[in-house]
């Protein structure tokens, strides 16, 4: 594969890691020349993410619509197993009443899993197909695009802020949670004059901790999948040796795919349940 289209190894790798982009410029909409343009869109990432999301939603909707109590189909049994699993995970971690968290968790779990699963499609199949169809670049795994992972983790972050303020109030969140922890000036017996310094110190610490949540959430997923994808690309360069290595890495990657989807879901639940808790 290394010699496909007369490319060198490094060209092959860069080619595979390049998103199919479109962006508006002074000369109208331009394909694939969008570096640094914030208005650009990674068409392939969005396409596969939405495509998989629609497929997932369609499957779930069909199961939900045809679900029966007495005579569940096999698909229904599998979906129920998933729902029950997510429901148990949510109940174990989150003790409040919230109609959003469980559906959010199952959507994230299955959607992220499916997006990760695109990694197991041999690296050259879809790009070659697209190339034959006149599309130059195609990156098939949406979760190897930081836009996608950050898009999800920032949504979760907004929910964290929203529920924190909703449950604890603006003062309870900004002052009580971000400024009175971890060093509580009241407990430490600090004179009132020095409270602002302690609170500012706390605020810096806590803000970093808070911002680390969405950052770690998205970077963990992105990093794992990007590295996995890169491994597949590198293995694809090895000629005949790639066959056993591909198989081995794919088997190992199944674990990573599932685990990362699970971690993303569980951490979302944990962060949101923390947002609901009073200190």
């Amino acid at each position: 594969m290394a010699s496909e289209g007369g490319k060198t190894s490094s060209e092959y790798i860069t080619h595979h890691l390049q998103n199919l982009q479109v962006c508006p410029t002074d000369n109208g909409w331009v394909w694939n020349d969008c570096t640094g343009n914030f208005l650009g869109i990674n068409v392939d990432s969005i396409f596969f993410a939405v495509f998989l999301g629609i497929g997932l939603s369609w499957l779930f909707y069909r199961v939900a619509k045809n679900a029966t109590v007495k005579n569940p189909s096999k698909t229904q049994a599998v979906v129920e197993l998933l729902v029950d699993f997510v429901d148990t995970s949510v109940r174990e971690t989150f003790h409040g009443e919230n109609k959003l968290i469980a559906p959010l968790a199952i959507t994230l779990l299955c959607w992220v899993f499916l997006m990760n699963l695109m990694d197991l499609v041999p690296v050259d199949w879809l790009p070659s197909l697209a190339h034959a169809g006149g599309i130059e670049y195609l990156k098939v795994v949406p979760t190897t695009d930081p836009n996608i992972t950050f898009g999800m983790s920032i949504s979760v972050f907004i929910l964290i802020i929203y529920y924190s303020i909703k449950i604890k109030g603006v003062g309870g969140f900004f002052v009580g949670e971000l400024m009175m922890n971890p060093l509580n000036p009241k407990d430490l017996g600090v004179p009132k004059i020095f409270w602002p310094f302690v609170m500012a110190f706390n605020f810096i610490l806590e803000s970093v901790a808070l911002l680390a949540k969405p950052l770690s959430l998205s970077l963990r997923l992105f990093g794992n999948l990007y590295a996995g994808e890169l491994m597949f690309i590198l293995i694809a360069l090895l000629g005949l040796w790639q066959l056993p290595l591909h198989f081995g890495w794919a088997v190992f990657h199944i674990l990573i795919i599932t685990l990362q989807a699970y971690i993303f879901m569980i951490l979302t639940i944990v962060y949101l349940s923390q947002a609901h808790e009073h200190h």
């Binding site: 969008c34 208005l39 650009g40 869109i41 695009d145 836009n147 996608i148 898009g151 999800m152 920032i154």
Partner: peptide, 13 residues
Amino acid sequence: DINLTLIGQTIAM
């Protein structure tokens, strides 16, 4: 790069 895809993904989610 970070671009509009992020917003698109957020909306999709």
